[in-house]
Structures are given as structure tokens and as C-alpha cells.
Simulated scan of single mutants.
Amino acid sequence: MKHSLLLLLLLALCRLALGQAAVPYGHNPAAGKFATLRGVKLYYETYGSGPPLLLLHGNGGSSQDFKQTIPYFARRYRVVALDSRAHGQSVDAGDSLSFEMLADDCAALLSHLRLDSAYVLGWSDGGITALLLAQRHPGRVKRLAATGANLWPDSTALAPALWQQMRRGYREGRTQTFTDARRRNDWKVFLLDWRHPHIPLSALARVKAPAFIIAGDRDVIRAEHTVAIYQNLPRAWLWIVPNSGHATLQEHAEEFNRQVDAFFRAKSVPAPAR
């Protein structure tokens, strides 16, 4: 009887410890705040202390996507995980969306937090936003890491299967009338990737911050497109992650975190070979 009670007590303590360890990233009242900036209500969470690091998620995602990223970087950075406008808990009642808007939101958030600049890590759409943030607000970005980013929306940048899927989605959705607010928002978010971005390779010359350009070897972004981004940046590293799809930071979280951290802390970043 005593052994049974002891076992039950130990199980209860284990469940309690696991519950305490399971941080609800993206929905954490202890770390989350709202800021009304540029006409939208942006949600963000902060963790850790040290040099600021801004995390930017992909299309249809939220700060919750960084649950394998935040614990690692919060040990030596002040991590700011943002829900982009019209995503997660961030509210946006407007009828249009662009990556330029998202980049300007990031600059406004840094000002709101009284941060002159930050390291930036962006995944997919977040990688595009990171590049535009560095281009439009060059003093705001110390260094940036972008995984799975593209510069324009067509089959020369995206894998054929993804491009065909997007074309079908557009054909099916363009004649619909969305009366539900959630579905209207989902359609707006879809159109973001269907219509944008439009960043010429020549514009990358204005990105003065060192950049780490990343993609999986089985990414939905064409490898030659990723290489072209790297080659047209003034100071950049390139990493094509073996045995990885689009979700490099989740499929290879431990190595991904180490490599990005090493880039952020490297003493110098050479210019890419032409």
C-alpha cells in the first residue's frame, strides 16, 4: 500500500514537472503583450536577456512555430517572438497585406521596445520580411538569418508542385465571397504569397547587414533561387541543409540553432564568391 502511494506521488510530481516545462509559446500570458502600432494590434512574447533577437514566422503561422528555437536562444539573447499582422493573435482589419507592411511593423515594434537594432531570424515569409527590414531600415538589423525565403512568386523561385497548388488555390478562391471574418483573413494571408514579394536581385545590394541564407535540400524554394539570393548579398553565408524540407529550424532544430548562433557571434562574415 505504501509503495503504491509512493508511486502515485512520484507520478503526480512528474506530471507537474512536465506541465511546468511545457511553455505555451504563442499563447503565454506570462511573456505575451500587445502593442497597437501602425493601425494594427500586434502580439509578441519576450524571453531571456542579452542582445535582442527578433523571430519572424512564416505564412499562416505564429510565434508558436519557434517552440524549438526560443529555449536555446533565450539563454543568451533577449528573444522577441512576433505574431505578424493578420497572424496568430495579432489583429489586422485591413483588406491588404504586403511584406513591406510586415517589415515596417517590425521597425515600429523595435522602436516601441526602445531597441535601436536587433539580430533577426526569419522562416519562410519571415525570411522575406527579414530581408526587407534590412533593406528598408538598414540601421535596425545587426545580422539576419533567413531560411526558406523567396524574392518573387512564380515557378522560377518556388518548386513546381507548390506553385501548381497555389494556382489551384487562387482559381478556387477568387470567385468566392467570404462572409466569415476568419476566412477573409485566411484569404488575405494566402494572397500575400500569391501576389508577393517582388524584390529584384539588384535590391539586395542595399542589405548591408551580414546575412545567413538557409534552405533545405528538399525545400519548396528552388535551390538555384536560394543561391542567387546569397550571391547578390554584399556579406553572406550560405547553408543548404542536408536531408531537410522547408522546416529546417524544426527538422534539424539542434544543429540549426547552433549554426545560426555561431553566425550571429562570428567575428566576420566574408563576401560571397561571385
Rank of each mutant, 00 (worst) to 15 (best):
A81S: 10
L131F: 08
S49Q: 15
A81H: 03
D104I: 05
G60H: 13
R38P: 08
R85C: 12
T179K: 07
L192M: 13
V269H: 08
P160D: 07
L54T: 00
S155F: 03
A22L: 15
P51H: 06
Y230L: 08
I199R: 07
R167M: 05
N59S: 09
R184I: 11
R140N: 15
E172L: 15
L131E: 07
I214T: 05
K188Y: 07
V220C: 02
A93N: 08
L102Y: 11
P234Y: 07
P270M: 07
E172S: 09
I214W: 03
A262Y: 02
K41T: 07
V220M: 13
R195V: 02
S202T: 12
G148F: 04
A253I: 04
A118E: 11
N28S: 14
R183F: 10
S268M: 10
W152V: 11
L13Y: 02
P29W: 01
P29L: 09
A266N: 14
V23K: 09
R184G: 08
Q164M: 06
A145L: 05
G60Y: 02
T248S: 10
F212P: 07
G127Q: 00
N232Q: 14
N243M: 13
T226P: 02
Y43G: 01
W194T: 09
L37I: 12
L162R: 09
W194K: 09
L18C: 13
V207Q: 13
G122R: 03
G50S: 03
Q20G: 05
A81M: 02
N185R: 13
F178N: 08
A273K: 12
N185C: 14
K41V: 01
Y230M: 07
L53P: 06
G173H: 07
D104E: 06
K41G: 05
A236N: 03
A209C: 06
G50W: 01
A74H: 11
H87W: 04
V189I: 15
H198M: 08
Q250P: 05
L9I: 09
G26M: 04
R258D: 04
A253S: 05
A247V: 07
A181R: 12
W237Y: 06
R222F: 05
L121I: 14
G32I: 08
A273V: 11
D217Y: 05
K208C: 08
T179M: 11
A159S: 14
R114A: 15
A31V: 01
Q20N: 09
T129Q: 10
W123A: 11
L6W: 06
V227A: 14
A22I: 15
P272L: 11
K67Y: 13
G148S: 14
D261V: 06
N243F: 09
A17M: 14
A118I: 13
A12Y: 06
P272T: 08
S124Q: 04
K142S: 15
P160F: 14
G122C: 05
V260F: 11
A12N: 05
V260P: 01
I199T: 09
T46D: 00
S244K: 01
G39M: 12
F66M: 01
Y44K: 03
V220D: 14
A181S: 13
A108T: 01
A30T: 03
I128C: 11
D116E: 15
L11H: 05
